[in-house]
Simulated assay, not measured.
Amino acid sequence: MEPELLHGVTDAVATVVLHHPAKRNAMTAAMWRALPPLLDKLAADPAVRALVLTGAGGTFCAGADISTLRGSPDETQQLAVRAEEALAAFPKPTLAAVKGHCVGGGAQLAAACDLRFAEEGALFGVTPAKLGIVYPSSATRRLVALVGPATAKYLLFSGELIDTERALRTGLVDEVLPADGLDERVAEFTRVLVSRSQLTQAAAKEFADGRTDRDTHWAAQARGSGDTAEGVAAFLDGREPRFTWTTSG
């Protein structure tokens, strides 16, 4: 089967699957190129309230397909950066569900998600030093923001893989689940995400990612949304809130 991105939407959660099992879901140029328009499509879908990125089978992503680097490594890196930035800019909560190897370009994509849940036994690595590649500045800054400069340098300088225990301790992942427990936990947690206010989530995502010029915008959105009134009323009535503000307008 040709390398591709699979996707579907169930119960307001979009799932994007990196599918290249012959090479442990390594990203081809075509896969990098296909990700931004797919994300645009899912972002515009009012039925989507959260997104999960995962890999086919028992691995997340082993990086870039090295065979694609022989022709034009600069072009491949540009495609990877565009895909990474599109994922980071997705306006709804994103979660990487990681099994097996999450290496190189796979780690780049996982770091661009808002959250990362991993199954015990997963391995993480940022491996450009093994290939003589300059890791993109955007990806480097994002990695530093997650794990701090010391761990980022350890990963980038050495290209060594780390296990889930160290990934959790350094902040690279948010939760580690027992074997066969990842899918259930991701489904449970995304049910929580889609029940919450998209207004709160969208504003928090921008603020957490460093936007400092949007306070007035989000204050106006909050005043006109009705979400605050609904949230307070639902709390006082002892019921689940029915939030109506959406990123899709």
Score class of each variant (00 low, 15 high):
125 G>M: 05
41 K>P: 13
207 F>H: 08
165 E>Y: 14
64 A>N: 04
153 K>W: 15
43 A>T: 02
168 L>R: 00
192 V>F: 07
143 L>M: 04
234 A>N: 11
203 A>K: 02
60 F>W: 11
191 R>P: 02
112 A>R: 13
86 A>C: 11
152 A>P: 11
122 A>K: 09
211 R>A: 08
123 L>P: 00
222 A>T: 07
126 V>W: 06
75 E>I: 10
101 H>S: 11
185 R>Q: 14
216 T>N: 01
193 L>R: 06
226 G>K: 05
135 Y>N: 02
67 S>A: 15
148 G>Q: 02
79 L>Y: 05
149 P>Y: 01
67 S>R: 10
126 V>R: 02
18 L>F: 11
51 L>N: 01
163 D>N: 13
28 T>E: 04
214 R>G: 12
148 G>W: 09
163 D>L: 12
138 S>G: 07
186 V>C: 04
125 G>F: 06
92 K>Y: 08
72 S>Q: 07
188 E>D: 00
155 L>D: 01
146 L>G: 05
173 V>P: 04
173 V>E: 04
230 E>D: 01
169 R>Y: 11
37 P>V: 14
94 T>K: 09
183 D>A: 12
179 A>S: 09
214 R>P: 12
242 R>G: 14
146 L>Q: 10
243 F>N: 00
65 D>H: 15
39 L>G: 02
82 R>F: 11
139 A>Q: 00
22 A>R: 10
90 F>Y: 15
34 A>C: 08
20 H>A: 12
105 G>L: 13
204 A>W: 08
104 G>T: 07
26 A>G: 06
249 G>E: 10
126 V>E: 02
152 A>N: 03
80 A>C: 14
106 G>P: 04
245 W>K: 06
149 P>H: 01
200 T>L: 11
101 H>P: 08
182 L>E: 00
178 P>Q: 12
185 R>Y: 14
158 S>L: 15
58 G>Y: 03
74 D>C: 04
115 L>A: 02
137 S>H: 08
42 L>M: 07
247 T>F: 13
122 A>C: 15
86 A>V: 11
121 G>A: 13
232 V>W: 03
240 E>D: 08
7 H>W: 14
190 T>Q: 01
79 L>P: 08
108 Q>S: 12
